[in-house]
Design a protein around this nucleic acid. Structure first.
Lengths: 232, 232
DNA sequence: TTAAAAGTTTAGACTCATCTAAATTATATG
DNA sequence: CATATAATTTAGATGAGTCTAAACTTTTAA
């Protein structure tokens, strides 16, 4: 990396913070491959700009403003990753490094456009949630394509992603939109086409379409909700 | 702009060079909004790297290596512009500034992918030629969509551009590929669908497809060739 | 409880891209 | 063709981001 930007510092601190541990100068230095001295002086500047709170010798915490920026960068990163994979068809192992560069140079307007083309996804295929435009991060427990889902289980659509307006229009017509509940009635062997139920309607959809619809099993989703209630 | 990169300097020199005039320190400074002193010292560095030839007080010329980089940046810029317009559907007036940023952070692999998704275009809709992967710049005299072309004229396809694989497949099947000659036999009023002739075959194509095919009138193209012969 | 070890900050120096002002070189005009 | 004017380069300063080494604070453990 060239000189990390302010965004890189804030993102690093955000990620370290999620690890629950106190965020130290040296942990940031480690992550960004810089000397401790460099990080200390940069942290002082960020503190002056009210992006972090810093107590000498005792670590760093993001302010609300700092966190907002960090989350925005993460949103850009994940959407760009997904975009590179889904629309430009790059391999997963390459998209991370590319996104690491691009995340700093994508305007809000381009972001919105990418979000739209991808069908407003809630998570990337790794299962990492994509923060919303307003900065909320919803936990996504599970996220795979309809093509991979089990027959019979109740499913909910997380996102429909495609660069192909025709497929999109097809999905819209069938009511296959984020948040909608569906289930698979049958899978044709070999071809892999699916019979699905949406509300009270039954449809037959091609495999290519099923591969572009990301879903979660409702049972698991509920289990996660319970877990949350127990632990919080 | 933040501090211009080496690529920005080379691109600026390339463009000034096309204007035929001697490229002076001050013309570069003007273009990049820097002081003359700054440009002089930067030019000295570029000269040390063999990217430009500099004779004190007498101007600057790109070396072969420098020109190669400049052309590559211009290729990235124009492809990114077209991509933002065609795939992400941004307005033309916004596309330039965005591309100005992004052109420095797009890898060769992403470039190839964008080129493919756009159908290997030879020019952007402004008519500016897009340099090839190997750095050749072909003059493109004229470039508009098939939807806008005149009935009866002989046309040649410059590019077929779409994010939609279905449309692309449709075009391929009909042999609508860059370099191919076609003509319009008839336009349906209102709907705007077209009857076209490709080789000895006749087809009927929807307006939506015609809008994604960029063409040049063959007569004009010949005229341009003549002009070249006269002036060179 | 205190001394050694570990972690953090400060001091001072370096490089880089930039600037203004002064010095130098080229060009244009009487 | 000599000199005034314009253009270019050099000199020296500034601010940003980085480093190493020294100074300082906190933690650990005898």
């Amino acid at each position: 990396m060239i000189s990390p930007t302010i965004e890189d510092y804030l993102k690093a601190i955000f990620k370290l913070q999620k690890g629950k541990e106190k965020v130290t100068t040296s942990s940031i230095a480690e992550r960004l491959q810089l000397s401790n001295a460099t990080v200390t002086s940069m942290i002082k500047k960020l503190a002056k700009q009210k992006l972090v709170k810093h107590v000498s010798y005792h670590g760093v915490v993001l302010t609300e403003g700092g966190e907002k920026i960090a989350v925005k960068v993460i949103r850009r990163h994940r959407l760009v990753e997904l975009f590179l994979k889904e629309i430009l068809e790059l391999e997963w192992d390459k998209v991370h490094d590319e996104a690491e560069q691009l995340e700093h140079y994508i305007s809000d307007e381009i972001m919105d456009s990418i979000d739209r083309v991808l069908g407003y996804p809630k998570a990337d295929p790794h299962g990492d949630p994509i923060p919303t435009r307003s900065g909320d991060i919803e936990k996504v427990e599970d996220n795979y394509t309809l093509a991979e889902a089990e027959v019979g289980k109740k499913l909910v659509i997380n996102s429909v992603s495609d660069g192909d307006p025709n497929k999109l229009r097809f999905m819209f017509k069938l009511g296959l939109l984020p948040g909608v509940s569906i289930s698979i009635k049958n899978k044709t062997p070999f071809e892999g086409d699916l019979d699905i139920k949406v509300g009270s309607s039954h449809y037959h959809i091609p495999l290519a379409v099923a591969k572009k619809i990301y879903v979660t099993q409702i049972e698991r989703r509920l289990k996660e909700e319970e877990k949350k209630h127990l632990t919080v």
